[in-house]
């Protein structure tokens, strides 16, 4: 049996998880809460992360708008996701929650705008 220590990233507490695995089966997880158990299973077989970055905006108050994945995204595909974001350009105004790339790279995850980005001239005191 293999003993693995993972640090849970589900919340800011950052608990250390004691995981025992036998080949492809997790035998036990000692965690601070239920989310830790879920995290351990996910992390060992299909690691995912929330990914946040920016994309270019035309005519926006700022030249970029921050974006993030709607759900945790498969970790091995993060480089391809970032490349896809570099190729995107959106037109202001952008609304918070606006889908920037739907089902990105064939996953069930969307990339969405993290905030409104008004047009440059629309910004006033």
């Amino acid at each position: 049996m293999e003993k693995i220590n993972l640090i849970c990233v589900s919340c800011p507490k950052g608990c250390t998880l004691d995981v025992r695995r036998e080949g492809d089966t997790i035998v036990s997880v000692e965690a601070g809460c239920k989310r830790g158990v879920t995290y351990a299973h996910q992390e060992l077989f299909d690691p995912r992360r929330m990914v946040a970055s920016t994309v270019k905006v035309v005519d926006g108050l700022h030249p970029l708008v921050p974006v993030a994945t709607s759900d945790p995204f498969p970790k091995p595909q993060i480089p391809q996701l970032l490349q896809a974001l570099r190729e995107v350009q959106v037109q202001a105004p952008v609304k918070i929650g606006q889908v920037i790339i739907p089902s990105v790279l064939g996953t069930d995850v969307d990339v969405i705008a993290s905030r409104d980005m008004p047009e440059e001239q629309a910004a006033s005191i």
Binding site: P12, M50, A52, P66, I96, S114, R115
Partner: peptide, 19 residues
């Protein structure tokens, strides 16, 4: 702070800072 991790305590959601 465009990264995620905001709102877990108060809103029960994992949000980017601007959101």
């Amino acid at each position: 702070c465009i990264h995620n991790g905001f709102g877990l305590e108060n809103l029960g959601e994992d949000l980017p800072g601007p959101t």
